[in-house]
Write a protein that binds this DNA or RNA. Sequence first.
DNA 1: AATAAATTTAACCAAATGGTTAAAAAACTT
DNA 2: AAGTTTTTTAACCATTTGGTTAAATTTATT
Lengths: 207, 207
Amino acid sequence: MKKKDKSTEEAILQVARKAFTQKGLSGARMQDIADEAGINKALVHYYFETKEKLFALIFEQEFGKFFSNLALVISSEIPLFEKIEQMVKLDIERLSQFPDLPLFVLNEVSHNPARMVKRLKQMGVKDMLGSFQKQIDGEIKNGTIKSIRAEQLLINIQSLSIFPFIAKPMIKNVFQINEKDFQEMIEVRKKEVSLFIIDALKINDKI
Amino acid sequence: MKKKDKSTEEAILQVARKAFTQKGLSGARMQDIADEAGINKALVHYYFETKEKLFALIFEQEFGKFFSNLALVISSEIPLFEKIEQMVKLDIERLSQFPDLPLFVLNEVSHNPARMVKRLKQMGVKDMLGSFQKQIDGEIKNGTIKSIRAEQLLINIQSLSIFPFIAKPMIKNVFQINEKDFQEMIEVRKKEVSLFIIDALKINDKI
DNA sequence: AATAAATTTAACCAAATGGTTAAAAAACTT
DNA sequence: AAGTTTTTTAACCATTTGGTTAAATTTATT
C-alpha cells in the first residue's frame, strides 16, 4: 500500500536521503530505496533516471543544509563575540536535527571534490570571508582579542561545533554513554563552546 | 612484473589500505586491489580469503594508528598544559602522515560501530579517562583553570586537531588554497591550537 | 464513455562483483 | 634430478546491481 499524503517523488527523495546519508553513494542500493519507498525500482528511474543523478540531487540539498545561514551570520553586522555565539548555536542546533549531515557531506566531498565546486561559487563564500577577516583584524587592532587569522578562527569554530557529530559513535563508546547522555553533552556544548572560544580569544590583561 | 622487495602479502595490504581508506568498504573493488598490486584476483583471496576479512584487518591497523600513543600521553604524569601541547602535537603530526585516517576510521565506525568495540576494550580507555579526570579536577580546585569536564576538554582537543584533516578538501576549496598552503596552515595550527586551548582554560585574573 | 497522457509494474538484460576451482609455475626438500 | 609443497594464474560461477522495456493501470481530458 502506498501513502498518497506524500507524492511519490517526495517519498523517493526522503528514502534516498536516508540511504545515501547512512551508506554513501556506493553503499546505497536502488532496490532498497524502491523497497523502502514501497514502489517498483523502475519507478525510481522513471523519476530520477540514474543513481548518480538522484545522489547528486540529495548531495546538493544536504550540502546546502551544511552551510545554511552560516554565510548570513558570518557577514552580519553584529559584534564578534556575539557572532561566535550565534555561529556555534546555529551549527549545533542544525546538526542536532541532522546528525548524519557532516559525515555524509565531508565524506562525499573527499571522494569527489568536484561536486562541491559549483555549489560553493553560488554561495557568496569569498565576500563572506573578506568581511569576517576585516572584523577580526579590527578587533585585534583595538586590542580586544589576541592575534589570529580569520581562517584559523573559522576552522576552530567549525571544528568544535561539527566534530562531535562526526565522532558520535566513537564518543558514545569511548565514554560509555547512551543517546540521551550524548544529547545532554551536546546541550552543554551549545553553551560552553562559544565561551571556550571567546575565552581563548580574550586578552588576559593581568596587572 | 612483480617487485619482490616486498612480499606479496605486504603488497596486497599496502594497496588494499589505500583502496579502503580512499573509497571505503563498499567503494573498493577486489579486482582493482589485485590489479594495482600487479597480481591475480584469486591471489588476494588466497592470502586474505574474503573482502570483509581483508577490510577488517586494515581497519584494525588504522584504528590502532588513530589512537596510537594517545593513551600514553593522556595517562602520563606531566602537567596539564604540557600534556595538552603534547596531545595536539602528536595528533597533528600523526595525521600529517596519514591524512585519510580520521575520515576512514570515523566513517567506518559510523557504519558499523560493533567493529570498534573489541578494539577499544583492548586499549585501556577507561583507566585513561579516570586519571585525566582527576588531573583536571585537581587543577580546577587549585584555581589554575576554569571548570570543565574532562570529556568536553578531550573532545575539544581532538576536534581542533582532527577536524581540519576531515574537512581538508572543503577547506582547500573554501579558502582557495593549494596543498602547500594547506600544509603550512597545519604547521601553524600545530603551534597555535594548544595555545588556543590553554588560553581558553586559563583563569583570566583581572584585578 | 472514449481517448490520451501520466504513472506504475513485472520481467528482463548486461555488466560488475565477490568468490571458486583446477591446473600451471615456482620454490623448496630429499 | 625427482618429488613435494607453496604460490600464482586463467577460466569460471552465482549473485548482485544499475538500468531498460513493454505492458498494465491509474489519472486526466474531451
